Simulated scan of single mutants.
Amino acid sequence: MNKWFKQFSVILALVIGTTFSALSFAHGDATDHTHAATEGQIWSEIQAGATGYTTSHGQFHNQPINSYDLRVLELRSDWLAPALMAALFGMIIIFVLFIKVNGISKLHHGFSGKMVYRWSKFDVSIHWLGAIPCLLLILTGLTLLAGRFFFQPYLGEGFWAGLVYGAKQIHDYMAIPFMIGWALMTTLWAKNQLPKMYDVKWFLVVGGYINFGPFKGKHPDAGFANAGEKMWFWAFAFFGLIISASGMLLLFPNLFEPSRTLSLIALVLHSVSAIVICAFSIVHIFMATVMSEGGMECMVSGYCDENWATQHHNLWYDEIKANGTLKYKA
Rank of each mutant, 00 (worst) to 15 (best):
F95M: 07
L80G: 03
I93K: 04
P82H: 11
S77D: 11
L73N: 09
L73P: 01
K106L: 09
F98Q: 08
L84K: 12
F95W: 14
F95Q: 12
A86K: 00
M115L: 12
H109A: 13
L84G: 00
A81G: 06
A83P: 07
M115A: 13
M85G: 03
F111E: 12
G110F: 02
L84P: 04
K100R: 14
K114W: 09
I104F: 06
H109L: 15
V96P: 00
M115W: 14
I92R: 05
W79T: 12
L80S: 06
W119E: 06
V116A: 07
E74G: 05
M91V: 00
I99L: 09
A81C: 01
R76H: 05
F89M: 04
S105D: 15
G113E: 02
V116R: 11
L97P: 06
N102G: 01
K100D: 08
H109Q: 09
N102F: 00
L97E: 05
H108F: 06
I104P: 09
F98M: 11
M91Y: 05
R76S: 14
L107M: 11
H108G: 10
D78A: 14
G103A: 03
G103S: 02
Y117R: 15
L75G: 06
M85E: 01
M91C: 08
S105P: 00
A87Q: 03
L97R: 11
M115N: 13
I104V: 15
K100V: 13
A87L: 03
L88C: 05
G113Y: 04
L75E: 04
I94W: 12
G90K: 07
L75W: 02
I99S: 02
F111Y: 13
M91T: 09
A86F: 15
F95D: 05
L80E: 06
F98Y: 13
M115P: 00
R76D: 12
D78M: 08
L75C: 07
I104Q: 10
L88K: 01
V101W: 13
R76T: 10
G110L: 07
A86M: 14
I93M: 15
W119K: 14
E74T: 14
I94D: 01
I99P: 03
A86S: 11
S77G: 08
I104W: 09
M91F: 10
M115H: 12
L84S: 09
F111Q: 11
I99Q: 08
E74H: 11
I92C: 08
A87F: 01
L75T: 09
L75V: 03
F89H: 01
